[in-house]
Write a protein that binds this DNA or RNA. Structure first.
Lengths: 125, 125
DNA sequence: ATATAAACAGTAATGATTATCATTATCGTT
DNA sequence: AACGATAATGATAATCATTACTGTTTATAT
């Protein structure tokens, strides 16, 4: 894998925020520094980086895929009303993948735990 | 909500299998009984039923959304190689949504726990 | 400096899902 | 049993996030 300033800018944008952005958001953000970057480059690198486990592909929330620059194991809350994705600090056994792996007839590498509901902002409005 | 034989056939198809099918699979299945049913009807009803909590929308795996007729709380395993979705029998505390709700500044309704890895069939090939 | 392979920008294509709309089916009321 | 109100449907078009393609540029090893 060669270096590229585009890829570095994508990582920087992703790590600068906790909103768990979409490809579009990252595109807008990176264009401030590299105005002619292509949206295809954003997608190509997000896929490449997540396949290398340098970032986390959270999955499709609403219409678009969400990404996370924080690769430390943690869980997410998704607001069903506004589609906001937030980190959720919930102490539970993060080794459940390993435990499940022992019981499962196949190979379990990792897990994803998502909580769904309504965020405070939406409850207040 | 009025009855419709299309919706009933969709529920029947979904409950007849454990493969956690896509809308396309259900479309093919239901067409055996109702040959001129429309794909739009499949999508419309799957969305309606999941919003009424009569079925479960697992989410997008690979390219397409997967559904489950089994609404009893349970977890899923996703094979990253073949995109197969399987039920996984893993005993853990299903009340974590309620516990997380107490700690979270917002309203948590439910959670989704997905395990990712490689299934036995793929490991053998 | 040059070779070569990866990465890029720009654009077109793909394909799952949703929207539209005229028609049909359901169901409570008469 | 016919009626009226409205939910649901089939057929098709539209949407739009993501991926594929192609000719050009860039990084890096020799």
């Amino acid at each position: 894998m060669k270096r590229s300033k585009q890829r570095e800018a994508i990582i920087e944008a992703l790590c600068s925020t906790t909103i768990h952005p979409t490809a579009d958001w990252i595109y807008d953000e990176v264009r401030k520094k590299i105005p002619n970057i292509s949206l295809g480059t954003i997608y190509r690198n997000l896929n490449l980086l997540s396949s290398e486990n340098d970032i986390v592909k959270i999955g499709v929330i609403g219409e678009q895929c969400r990404y996370d620059g924080n690769i430390k194991p943690h869980n997410h809350f998704v607001c069903k009303r506004c589609n906001k994705v937030m980190d959720i600090d919930f102490e539970y056994d993060n080794s459940i993948s390993e435990e499940a792996d022992k019981l499962f007839d196949g190979d379990i590498e990792y897990h994803s735990l998502l909580f769904f509901g309504t965020c405070k902002d939406c409850l207040d409005n």
